[in-house]
């Protein structure tokens, strides 16, 4: 659905995107994660056709998106900081969206409105709470029946029930309408629940991009104990991202095929060996730790 090649963007002296390459398959829920200033929002704004890249190529459904209404009509964008016209209520915003998006579905809007009972369609949206405004934004965006929904920090300010509600609606649209969702968030636990693809950004580049299962399968957390204090050296064969030792117990984060790793370590006859699945948050921390990202303080 989205294909980005060598996208570069500079804001004055700051290189916001530095040859970013990424690919979002159709119907995927693609989570974009990365530290602050990594370039996530900038990348999303490029995908939404707001920014024009200095270099590189960005295609949405095979079409260039910048200054291309046909491509932009297939997507809706919910930014982290949502804009509504002053004095406008949901009814007026709906009219506005109807006039802008050729695919706006009024019936769907009315149906969805029932899922957001707290949203008062006659109340000035700017007077609503941040959470309510987010709900209104989802309501309008989904009613446009986009093929691609771009979400920048989408569920900030929503209560847990509403978060679940919104994700349910989105995932429903993904499964029924083959909608693609590109989402950036710092809430990795939440992304882990909903995303099937993940891209990790750092310093304007997408440093890692995999399906979540592939990603989780490629990095393993091991806890082992051997006869002596020393453990065999496996660095020649596998990439050890992190190694800590507490008494005889060694904890390792290792990149590589899980089965191959297990078979190889079994040859050293460890007293104990546990292979634990890695959370997205752990992968994020260890991946960026390797990129000289100062995560030590966060871990502590």
């Amino acid at each position: 659905m989205i294909q980005g090649k060598d996208i570069c963007k500079r804001f004055g002296d700051f290189q916001a995107l530095d040859h970013a390459n990424f690919h979002v398959p159709k119907g995927a829920v693609y989570g974009l994660v990365g530290p602050n200033g990594a370039g996530k929002s900038t990348l999303l704004r490029h995908v939404a056709g707001i920014f024009r890249q200095d270099r590189g190529e960005l295609l949405v459904d095979g079409e260039k998106v910048f200054e291309n209404p046909a491509a932009k009509a297939k997507l809706t964008f919910i930014p982290d900081d949502i804009f509504y016209f002053r004095q406008a209520n949901l009814k007026e915003m709906k009219k506005y969206y109807e006039g802008i998006y050729p695919t706006f579905d009024t019936e769907l809007f009315d149906k969805l409105l029932e899922c957001f009972p707290a949203v008062d369609r006659k109340k000035n949206i700017r007077r609503m709470s941040k959470g309510m405004q987010k709900q209104a934004a989802f309501l309008l965006a989904i009613s446009c029946k986009p093929q691609l929904l771009i979400l920048d920090e989408p569920v900030d300010g929503l209560d847990p029930v509403m978060r679940r509600q919104i994700w349910n609606i989105l995932l429903n649209a993904v499964s029924e309408e083959q909608m693609t969702v590109l989402v950036s968030s710092h809430n990795l636990r939440e992304l882990e629940d909903v995303c099937d693809h993940v891209g990790i950004m750092h310093k304007g580049q997408v440093i890692l991009e995999r399906s979540l299962s592939e990603l989780q399968g490629s990095v393993t957390k091991l806890q082992m104990a051997f006869e002596g204090d020393e453990m065999p050296d496996i660095t020649g064969r596998f990439e050890v991202m992190n190694h800590t030792q507490l008494g005889r117990v060694h904890t390792l984060i290792v990149k590589g095929d899980q089965r191959e790793l297990g078979d190889y370590l079994a040859t050293f006859h460890p007293l104990v060996m546990d292979m634990l699945p890695l959370t997205l948050e752990e992968i994020f921390i260890y991946e960026l730790g390797g990129e000289n990202y100062e995560v030590k303080d966060i871990i502590l």
């Binding site: 704004r45 056709g49 932009k72 964008f77 930014p79 804009f83 802008i100």
Partner: peptide
């Protein structure tokens, strides 16, 4: 940003 994400030239 919002206005320019709309499908218009």
């Amino acid at each position: 940003y919002t206005i320019h994400s709309f499908p218009m030239k």
